[in-house]
Design a protein around this nucleic acid. Sequence first.
DNA 1: AACGGGCTTTGACTCAAGTCAAGCAATTGG
DNA 2: CCAATTGCTTGACTTGAGTCAAAGCCCGTT
Lengths: 232, 232
Amino acid sequence: MKQYMPLLNQSVLFGGLPEEHLDAILSIASEKQMKSGEMIFFEGDPADGFYMVADGMVKIYKLSPNGKEQILHMFGPGEPFGEVPVFSGGVFPANAEAVKNSTILFFPRKRFVELIIEKPHVALNMLAILSKRLRHFTVQVESLSLKEVPARLAGYFLLLSEEQKSTRTVTLNISKGQLAGFLGTIPETLSRMLRKMSDQGLIEVEGRKIRLKDLDGLIDLADTGRLDAAEI
Amino acid sequence: MKQYMPLLNQSVLFGGLPEEHLDAILSIASEKQMKSGEMIFFEGDPADGFYMVADGMVKIYKLSPNGKEQILHMFGPGEPFGEVPVFSGGVFPANAEAVKNSTILFFPRKRFVELIIEKPHVALNMLAILSKRLRHFTVQVESLSLKEVPARLAGYFLLLSEEQKSTRTVTLNISKGQLAGFLGTIPETLSRMLRKMSDQGLIEVEGRKIRLKDLDGLIDLADTGRLDAAEI
DNA sequence: AACGGGCTTTGACTCAAGTCAAGCAATTGG
DNA sequence: CCAATTGCTTGACTTGAGTCAAAGCCCGTT
């Protein structure tokens, strides 16, 4: 398990801890390989610990009875997930599935709570992580309730633009189908709205590459929530 | 400030602490009276601490440019709010407004983080609170994305039924306009859907009292997300 | 008790986005 | 390389729910 030392060292949750502590943390962890498409846990499953992505990508999502999917989070290397029941008890509140071939680490609840009590630093890191999650949800609820699909798209591209440190082009790192699920819509609508935004000169789409042709227009669209003026 | 000792003692965040610790916590807190409708903080305000409701009720919400409101939370006595920036830095992610005449307590960030480092018990309580918040958001996103308004209503009544320990009648403790904002719709739609569910024999509405006439039907509606079979 | 303001309900109408189906494009596996 | 599978796009159509306006109701204040 030594190969995960750099990952832990750079993770938000365990970063800043001395090496012997990371050793102790790795000693309570177990690892597992997941194939793309494989379920890690289901909504409603009993939970006795939480996970961290070591490699690959994991989506957390809810499914409706007729098969529509709402993705809540996409997690990559170094990010914990499934930690809600560790602290509030109960079951996993959503499904977790590997989106790419992945390696995940599992931390048992009991051992981890002991660690938190010993190491306030880890408690504060976890509080920071949960707080960032809450921030993300605030934005997500706002998007779903108060914004139309093109505005959600614009917001997503601006976020990607920031992450990728590029104001000209962004590259989608998830499929368009997954993106539709993340934005609370279906692939048909996503496709139509991309076309609409292209026709209006806001973006240009080449597969997974999106050229941001009118950055101010995208910012305006994300803020106002709808394709108003340009539409009429 | 001694009058708040019972409140702290019974709160999830500070419950279980010895009295001298509660004394210390109250010594760092300041109190404030808010009138119904008064803003406590705005989205985007810098944050240097968090709050707790001592008395009254507070709503946390987002507003769209054209005035539509999405309520994220309604908090009552003993419940903390505004804690996200304490741990993740930055600004308040949403607005907070008193819905009734309220008394709120303010805890400065710096002093509180010192407290957390000294008292792992408080850290764990805060982790539990944030985890319950995440659970709530998971349900909210699911509702907004995957369920129609009547199903959201049914889910809300079932939640109230559980809180009020009654399977026959529930009483709304917020106005119908606020309820519409909480469920991600507008008052007009709320009114129509209440009428529709009444006509179908699921409920009976008398002002703020809702009689749950067909509990199984409501459970089914909340699960499937739509008024399918009974509609055709 | 009366009045006024705010909340809620109802009506007419519009539209964003979902459903269902089919065709096209890209990717994967043998 | 080719065939099969999966992902994406487009078309026709439907519907849940929002917009705008007005009427009705309820509650609080004087």
